[in-house]
Amino acid sequence: MAKLHVSTTINGEPMEFLCEHSDTMLDALRGPLGLTGSKEGCASGDCGACSITIDDRLICSCLMLAAEAEGHEIRTIEGMAHGEKLHPLQQKFLEMAALQCGICTSGMLVASDALLRKNPRPSEEEVRFWLAGNLCRCTGYDKIVRAVLETAAEMQEQGLKEFCQ
């Protein structure tokens, strides 16, 4: 069977790629699109290391067919910083050591960003349940949860609108 041609928007840029019918969005990102920031930890939607957003909805890209990206807007970890300026969540993860090995970090950041867009001042419990689909084996989640809560507090104080569009 011939490959499918897909036109989509990735991190604000119009993109085209070819894929097999059975390829997942994660396959397309890591393969033809060369965006390896999204990681494959399980390929079954259980670990969240491949978290992306499609039209602002948080999903595991291993559970989405690549062909479904046609006409939609995809955001990945590679689109999170604005040039040299890190997103406040990225900066806070660094300052608060909210990562150890870093394999879950892309997914954690994409998921945390999706949370703060929906709920700019989450409680600790809300952060914990929102991130329950993102496995981390290194940190015990403590510093991740603290970094998300502190970013939320700072973003609200400083009104960092540029990252909330």
Partner: peptide
Amino acid sequence: QRTIRPDGVDKVTGRAAFAAD
């Protein structure tokens, strides 16, 4: 001191190359 790790920016931006990358 709680300094920023040397490999940190690569890991929060998705640039760090792991085994399958």
